[in-house]
């Protein structure tokens, strides 16, 4: 279980996130949406132990996160910078598996399987700089999935791929995570995606980001790209989240309305 208690971070004097409270249960998929610059990446980096928040705490299974938690994988927003240009796609995906004490052969096999799942089986020998942005993004997703973390943090992981691939990747992530009981925190700016992928959607205000809405997505699983999206409940939820996100940018949103949404 992941708990954020009054999580606050300032970069110098700049207030990035403000008293974020959030509890994510084991195996839950939580999507975070919010306007650009509201501190979503800051939130993710705090959870990953990459920055030390200036206030509040991150608790994992009740214990405060001091450094990087074990069994964590991150898909960074800046995926291309997080791939190693001197390693092939296969070696990039296989590198974290060294921590799993796997043999070279086992690592290569697991990496190959993950790359195949994201549709890059044929490109396993390519280097990141020989790949398009969308391909690089899929390599970094494959790397995170192959690691089989118990907590998976994804920062706008499907931003550079086409709509069709995006749907396939959404389903892949959901499938792999359900199968391995992973907990996911996924940051996105796509309202539609947040409702489709999430068990819950958390809406952040603009900077300094704080939680203005927390909706439970009560849709039947497993999700299906066509059928789920045509459900009345889906359409309604999407409208709710959309209104909250838009309300934020139009500054029409206030705490009173947040409560109204939270109690539904």
């Amino acid at each position: 279980m992941l708990e954020l208690v009054d999580l606050t971070h300032r970069y110098g004097t700049y207030h990035a996130i403000d008293r974020i409270n959030l509890t994510v249960k084991q195996g839950e998929v939580v999507c975070v949406v919010g306007p650009s610059g509201c501190g979503k990446s800051t939130l993710l980096r705090s959870i990953a132990g990459l920055i030390k928040p200036t206030g509040g705490a991150v608790l994992l299974d009740g214990r405060p996160v001091e450094s990087t938690p074990d069994n964590l994988a991150v898909v960074f927003q800046d995926y291309s910078r997080s791939l190693y240009p001197w390693l092939s796609a296969l070696a990039n995906v296989g590198l974290p598996l060294r921590r799993r004490g796997m043999s070279r052969k086992a690592r290569d096999e697991a990496a190959m399987a993950a790359l195949t799942e994201v549709g890059l089986g044929a490109a396993a020998g390519k280097f990141p700089w020989e790949m398009s942005g969308g391909m690089q993004q899929r390599v970094s997703i494959a790397r995170a999935l192959a690691y089989r973390p118990s907590l998976l943090l994804m920062d706008e992981p499907f931003g550079s791929v086409d709509a069709q691939t995006r749907e396939e990747l959404e389903d892949l992530v959901l499938r792999v995570c359900a199968h391995h009981g992973m907990t996911i925190l996924l940051i996105t700016h796509d309202v539609d995606e947040s409702v489709y992928v999430g068990d819950r959607v958390v809406v952040l205000s603009k900077a300094p980001g704080h939680v203005v809405g927390d909706l439970t997505v009560d849709l039947p699983g497993p999700r299906d790209q066509i059928r789920t999206r045509e459900l009345d409940a889906f359409v309604k939820l999407r409208a709710d989240v959309g209104r909250m996100v838009r309300g934020m940018s139009a500054r029409r949103f206030d705490n009173g309305m947040t409560h109204e949404v939270e109690t539904r």
Partner: peptide, 9 residues
């Protein structure tokens, strides 16, 4: 690049 490896523990 360093943070990526650190995040994997």
């Amino acid at each position: 690049a360093k943070e990526t490896l650190r995040s994997f523990g």
